[in-house]
């Protein structure tokens, strides 16, 4: 893997249609595996309050905040339901040799 790509986990360590937390230095991410077996990554904390999205439920392409039920499309970061109104930052993800990598700038 070229520079800037960080190993997150083995593929399969994230259940289908689920999310895990991944911390790297000062950055905390939520890394998703979609119901279509694709991987995505966003900022870990909800843009509404400091609640980690990896504790929330993934439904299709949507992650729901476990506290206040704000919703985001984790494939684009777009806010979908109040009280979330500010988009989530997303990060590029790649799969190589059975491992999930994320690019943190």
């Amino acid at each position: 893997m070229s520079q800037g790509w960080i190993e997150v986990c083995e593929v399969g360590e994230i259940d289908e249609e689920d999310v895990i937390r991944f911390d790297h230095g000062a950055v905390s991410l939520a890394v998703y595996r979609s119901d279509k077996d694709k991987y995505y990554a966003t900022d870990g904390f909800c843009t509404h309050e400091r609640v980690h999205l990896s504790d929330g439920l993934v439904m299709g392409s949507v992650i729901e905040c476990p506290k206040h039920n704000g919703r985001f499309d984790y494939t684009t970061g777009a806010a979908k339901k109040t009280p979330a109104c500010e988009a989530l930052k997303t990060y590029p993800v790649q799969i190589e040799a059975g491992k999930v990598y994320v690019q943190i700038d």
């Binding site: 504790d55 929330g56 439920l57 729901e64 476990p66 506290k67």
Partner: peptide, 10 residues
Amino acid sequence: RGGLAKEIRV
């Protein structure tokens, strides 16, 4: 802690 919220949501 942790995964509680997911279970309650389902």
